[in-house]
Design a protein around this nucleic acid. Sequence first.
DNA 1: TAGTGGTCTAGACCACATG
DNA 2: ATGTGGTCTAGACCACTAG
Lengths: 237, 237
Amino acid sequence: MSKPALPRYRILANALRAEITSGRLKPGDQLKTELELCEIHNISRHTAREAMRLLTDDKLIERKRGSGTVVAQISAPTFEQPIGDFEAILQYARNAHFVLTSSAPADQEALDRTGLTGKYQQYIGLRTVDGKPPIAITAIYIPKKLAPTDDIIHGLETSVSEWIEQTHGVAVARVVQRMEAVALDASQAKRLGVNTGFPALRTIRRYRDASERIILLSESLHPAGRFAYEMRLDRSR
Amino acid sequence: MSKPALPRYRILANALRAEITSGRLKPGDQLKTELELCEIHNISRHTAREAMRLLTDDKLIERKRGSGTVVAQISAPTFEQPIGDFEAILQYARNAHFVLTSSAPADQEALDRTGLTGKYQQYIGLRTVDGKPPIAITAIYIPKKLAPTDDIIHGLETSVSEWIEQTHGVAVARVVQRMEAVALDASQAKRLGVNTGFPALRTIRRYRDASERIILLSESLHPAGRFAYEMRLDRSR
DNA sequence: TAGTGGTCTAGACCACATG
DNA sequence: ATGTGGTCTAGACCACTAG
């Protein structure tokens, strides 16, 4: 017996996932029970459950005690971004890969729309996860004095705001974010692969230093169904 | 030994979570090992691991084979600043007038859509400001045991969650809110005075007590252009 | 080398859903 | 009444980290 490259529960999870994503199992279809999987694959129930848990976490299946496991109705993968605090906001940019598609000085229309004054560099790109359709089109505005080159953007391991903090020695003291629903215009819709007028979540974040100066502004458009913003608030004691 | 309301791994997870959020355990601090937890709480290793998994999923802790478990770096500042926002969330309901239009037991479709299980009362209404078009259509779900009468809803000066807290003596310990863009269906669009497919901001808030039980769930649809959600995050250090 | 978390087995009892 | 998933126990071996 050769050593498995993956643990058994992952192998099983991948096999089940393939059945779902390939369409052999359709939404609402019943999956095999845990005990059936145990016999078929000659594994313990714990291992079978561990595989099912992976699919549950991905919202590919839904389980109900007494009735069994079915393929989830909305197996269209939506990207969830739990963000609950300031630090998490700063690290947000690291979670989804940013692919730069254009870099230029910000034009007047962009400055008006975002309420910026002064000279800014504008970076536009797509956020993607794996090979799925892009979850967002994002524009980032950085004051000319702090702006990195395109090469730096490409090679960034950290978030852009962290790069600015480390390179220029300024600290982000406050982030104000604003979210609303909008309809995509023709150009935006095309880049995201949907129709004009399609709903999107528009998120604008303004990063400021202790003197209220804007260090970075990001504007993202997340098409409906591909992204949900989740935040958790705990009560103080 | 009385029967526990919660499974053991959840009780342990809540205890550990409290140690972290209260600050008794700081970021970078080492947690007790699995075997130690087993002995201390007289549980099996599987149960201890299940508790740790919950905290890992919440990114409160980080685990590394061979070296142990530490409190995640992000977790410390997490519960300092959003505190103000937590109170703001609780008061959200007071800002715009809520006009109740229907009250009935929640049907299965609503339960499925919101992920609720059990018996809930559903209240649907519009949020308006002055005589302008409504800024939102809101559905509120409350467990039957905690549900107020329609008359009480009508006469409320406070928010619904505050009424529940004061009347039933349960405290909201946590709110998780989720926001995404959606397209309005025909019925929703009509009530808001827009066309079918019009973009809207969908906000779901789940209010939970210390035992993770849902006390109240609200689902709001804000049509594009009439509402924007803004939040401010200050760096705590 | 000793101790950690990661994986796995083989049982068990329970709450719940369905017929 | 049966079978489902949810919880739990008591073991085991392994890969990795650190002293």
